[in-house]
């Protein structure tokens, strides 16, 4: 009698905990489904709203008119890529050097600690603060005004901590036996890094750089006060007079990225402006998705080439 009671109580408890387990699993599945639904619907919504605009004649090839509310977004598209390239030209060597220092040379002690704390601080600063600093330092103090170069440096500050961490991780993931082999043959760490470690880490570095490029491409807050909120009305791509304000390649002219363009005109009520906003957003999304896919493909292709022959 007593025995069967215990069994009954035990069974009830087991039954209860099994039920809890099932409920928990159900709730978690629902959460995951919700998150996936949000991501997918977001992407689809933007594309659905904007892809049509991309095929409007002139949207991708004409300059904008009436402060961005009419016309195309050709210059914004160009400026976005130009800013990205300038940013990578500045930030890539610095991040590479910084990462190599931290992985290979950094002596133990306060100097290294200060340096890595500085990079960490930079990574957590709001981009608006970086933008304010860039504005004061480059636009005002250096007298560069609203210019692509100010914007590129602000983006560099935003990009360096990301890149440094990615490259650092990639270098650390190269088996230490590769480093040992080089050093044991009387080579310097510098040669080891240049000729063995960086080539071996290249797939991971490329993946990381392209991914970070996607982030830079969509950044806007740091650009508002540095590269400005407008592109020149007319750009001359054939001009090589780099001092001319209409020369497309002049890094001291103002410029406006796609993301800034969206921010500038999102509140405009006219239907044409709204079409432009969604078209720009769709273009931005497509670029970011491309960067995402490209980073994986490039990394995998490089890795395959290295391990194969």
């Amino acid at each position: 009698m007593g025995n069967s009671q215990t069994t009954a109580a035990q069974e009830a408890r087991i039954e209860r905990s099994m039920r809890n387990d099932r409920i928990a699993t159900g709730v978690l599945t629902a959460i995951v489904a919700l998150v996936m639904a949000i991501v997918v619907s977001m992407v689809l919504y933007i594309l659905a709203q904007g892809v049509g605009q991309l095929f409007q004649p002139g949207f991708l090839t004409e300059a904008s008119r009436a402060n961005g509310t009419e016309g195309g977004i050709a210059y914004q598209l160009f400026d976005s890529f130009y800013l990205l390239i300038l940013t990578l030209i500045i930030s890539l060597p610095i991040s590479l050097g910084g990462a190599v220092f931290l992985v290979e040379y950094a002596p133990e002690g306060p100097i290294t600690k200060i340096a890595s704390t500085a990079i960490e601080t930079l990574s957590s600063l709001p981009s608006i603060v970086v933008g304010m600093f860039g504005f004061l330092m480059f636009s005002v103090n250096f007298g560069w005004g609203y210019s692509l170069i100010s914007g590129a440096i602000a983006l560099t500050m935003f990009n360096i901590p990301i890149l440094t961490r990615v490259i650092q991780q990639a270098l650390e993931d190269v088996p230490s036996s590769q480093r040992d082999a080089c050093l044991a043959m009387g080579l310097t760490r510098w040669e080891t890094t240049l000729h063995v470690l960086i080539p071996a880490a290249m797939p991971a570095i490329v993946t990381g750089v392209v991914l970070s490029a996607g982030r830079v491409f969509g950044e806007a807050a740091a650009l508002l006060f540095t590269s400005g909120m407008s592109s020149p009305a007319r750009l001359n791509f054939l001009s090589l007079n780099f001092a001319s304000p209409t020369c497309a390649w002049n890094i001291f002219r103002p410029g406006e990225s796609l993301a800034v363009h969206i921010y500038k005109i999102y509140g405009e009520g006219s239907p044409e402006a709204q079409h432009i906003v969604w078209g720009t957003a769709a273009l931005l999304m497509i670029c970011v998705l491309l960067f995402n896919v490209l980073s994986r493909i490039a990394g995998k292709a490089l890795a395959r080439r290295m391990t194969a022959e």
Binding site: V39, I46, R215, G218, M285
Partner: peptide, 21 residues
């Protein structure tokens, strides 16, 4: 799931803002 969520990291904040708006 993880690649999908990481895609969210890459979406520019103005696009979030636009959808929010």
């Amino acid at each position: 799931f993880q690649p999908l969520v990481e895609l969210l990291t890459g979406i520019p904040s103005v696009v979030f803002g636009l959808i929010g708006f």
